[in-house]
């Protein structure tokens, strides 16, 4: 068994009176892809945002490479530089062109020179099928292309793990495939990933482990064939049955 990269230990988070996460324990090991499934509002995004320290947790701890990162003394900036985050709505910087979106973090946070950063960004963009688009405004790109730029941006600094927050949910159906291909490509390279997703087929294919979030708890965690084909938890069964009825699984 390889070493855990990200580890959640009793993570609890509430927004006002509404408890969103209630004692989450989850381990993401090196080279593993862990998929989080669950209904909208079940806390998938919140868990990812807590891991990137974009949200403060109320209780519990989160570890990155064995080091606790939810200690207030730990620099959030340093932690974020070791993780890559891809947002549901891409969140590209609209005032920057494609390549500057990728190089901003490398130059300002990573201290690279412009030439160095651009060289590396160009290779990263080419890898995700975006060669020749470097100088375009991001608003000229399709949703699928924008999300691939966002993946390139997050992966450019070679993070320890990628956090993917519903990266296909804002896309038109015909554009989902190209983004999933990009994620599959990361998986093949052995990138450690924590993926919140609605795409059950994709979770089944890519994930080494699937966690089902329900009512702020991880109702069920296990290999995809178990959680998705033969769920033990009644809530997981109900969730998957509903998806099946809607033709989404």
């Amino acid at each position: 068994m390889s070493a855990p990269v990200i580890e959640f230990e009793g993570v609890t988070k509430a927004f006002g009176d509404r408890e969103v996460l209630n004692g989450i324990d989850l381990v993401v090991e090196e080279h593993q892809a862990v998929a989080l499934i669950g209904a909208s509002g079940s806390g998938k995004s919140t868990l990812l945002r807590c891991a990137d320290l974009l949200l403060d947790i109320d209780d519990g701890d989160i570890y990155l490479d064995g080091e606790v990162i939810t200690d207030p003394a730990v620099s959030a900036v340093d932690v974020r530089r070791r993780l890559g985050f891809v947002f549901q709505a891409y969140n590209l910087f609209p005032h920057l062109n494609v390549i500057d979106n990728v190089t901003l973090g490398m130059r300002r946070a990573g201290g690279m020179s412009r030439a160095e950063a651009e060289d590396s960004a160009r290779r990263m963009l080419a890898r995700f099928g975006l060669e020749g688009r470097e100088n375009e405004s991001s608003s000229n790109l399709s949703g699928g292309q924008q999300q691939r730029v966002a993946i390139a941006r997050a992966f450019a600094a070679r993070p320890r793990a990628m956090l993917l927050d519903e990266v296909t949910s804002a896309l038109d159906p015909e554009l989902v495939g190209e983004v999933l291909r990009a994620v599959r490509d990361l998986k093949e390279e052995g990138v450690t990933m924590l993926i919140a997703t609605h795409e059950m087929g994709f979770a089944r294919e890519v994930a080494d482990k699937v966690g089902f979030l329900h009512g702020g708890r991880l109702a069920e965690v296990g290999p995809p064939e178990q959680v998705l084909e033969d769920p033990q938890d009644p809530n997981t069964q109900k969730f998957l049955r509903r998806l099946l009825e809607a033709g989404r699984a």
């Binding site: 974009l54 974020r80 993780l83 985050f85 947002f87 910087f93 901003l104 973090g105 600094a157």
Partner: peptide, 11 residues
């Protein structure tokens, strides 16, 4: 989300 994205790339 723009601030989040900026922080997420390490700024």
């Amino acid at each position: 989300g723009q601030r989040d994205a900026a922080l997420a790339v390490g700024l």
